[in-house]
């Protein structure tokens, strides 16, 4: 394999693996920016992956090629609803947000596998017949170098992911809603004094994270695994949290981190076929995202610090 061929293989694959991380990490950005820590992203991704595969299997014959979009829409809706567990516990019932996030992870996995066993009578679904396929973008694919690198093997979900990043950046930094969201996460009392409904903002943010987590899960299952079992989502949610932190709670930062972690995942999976990379034991690439996140938090790679009020329930009238 020549160096160029190698690049043409690695980069599209890295973007493919990064896509679910981007969705989910952006979801995390919304939640944490509003002051609610969401450890439950893994569970939300699992629920999204299950819903995506279920809808695809059940309605594939009916909707044909449009199925994947209906499946992802369903995952978005169910993800948002499922995240309400976390929202109610963490915001209204003042539960410890980490504990409630852990419960979301347990519940998401348990409910999904329970339903798979109930509906299909086994622990793993069949393969879907309408996965998300890659395609080439006309004209753009003919650009020398960048064509085969970026536009020859494109997944529609990846394009959507980039759109979501831009939208998230715009919403968080350029709209009144975004300003309120950040205010609620940094200094809820000040925001409250200015007439912002802190709890309402936080509910919306958590539901956005649920929707995007669900979308991430559905995208992962329909592009990469094509079926659902207990091991379909194995750490991607936590990796998305890592991407969010490594990206310093900023949508564009999270995008960069997710792309980088996608590259690491690709290399750890396909590395044995790539010259030079095959010399590196896969374990280094597998642990890279997590270790880098720890180093980033420790301040070795630029200081990463969370929104001030993240993790604390807001109690009116309490100083």
């Amino acid at each position: 394999m020549s160096f160029l061929e190698m690049l043409y293989f690695i980069i599209p694959s890295a973007i493919l693996y990064a896509t679910p991380l981007i969705f989910t990490a952006i979801g995390g950005v919304f939640s944490e920016r509003s002051g609610v820590v969401n450890i439950g992203l893994e569970g939300l991704m699992i629920v999204g992956a299950f819903v995506g595969i279920y809808v695809n299997l059940e309605y594939g014959a009916q909707f044909g090629a449009a199925t994947v979009w209906i499946a992802m829409l369903a995952a978005v809706v169910i993800g948002a609803i499922f995240s309400l567990f976390h929202a109610v516990a963490a915001i209204s019932f003042r539960a410890d947000q980490t504990v409630s996030g852990v419960a979301i992870n347990l519940l998401g996995l348990a409910v999904s596998v329970f339903l798979v066993k109930m509906i299909y009578g086994k622990g793993q679904t069949d393969m879907i017949s309408h996965p998300i396929n890659r395609f080439a973008i006309p004209y753009l694919k003919d650009i020398p170098f960048f064509g085969p690198l970026l536009f020859r093997d494109v997944y529609s979900t990846s394009i959507l992911a980039f759109a979501v990043v831009i939208a998230a950046w715009f919403i968080i930094y350029k709209t009144p809603f975004g300003l309120r969201l950040r205010a609620v996460g940094e200094h809820p009392m000040a925001a409250d004094t200015m007439g912002v409904n802190v709890n309402k903002m936080r509910y919306i943010a958590v539901m956005i994270s649920g929707a995007l987590g669900g979308l991430g899960g559905a995208a992962y299952a329909q592009t990469i695994t094509h079926d659902f079992s207990h091991a379909t989502i194995a750490g991607q949610g936590f990796m998305a949290i890592a991407a969010m932190i490594f990206g310093k709670w900023h949508p564009v930062g999270a995008l960069g981190a997710a792309l980088f972690f996608g590259l690491a995942q690709t290399l750890s999976i396909a590395g044995s076929q790539i010259p030079y990379v095959q010399e590196i034991p896969a374990v280094y690439l597998q642990i890279l995202p997590y270790v880098l996140t720890i180093l980033a938090l420790a301040g070795f790679i630029g200081k990463a610090s969370a929104p001030k009020a993240s993790g604390q329930p807001y109690i009116k009238g309490k100083r």
């Binding site: 516990a89 003042r94 539960a95 504990v99």
Partner: peptide, 22 residues
């Protein structure tokens, strides 16, 4: 009955204990 029902129950118990305030 799929054994995951117990994991569901455990997750719910965590929710309720964590929401002890209410």
């Amino acid at each position: 009955i799929p054994e995951e029902i117990v994991s569901i129950i455990i997750a719910l118990i965590i929710f309720f204990v964590a929401s002890g305030y209410i």
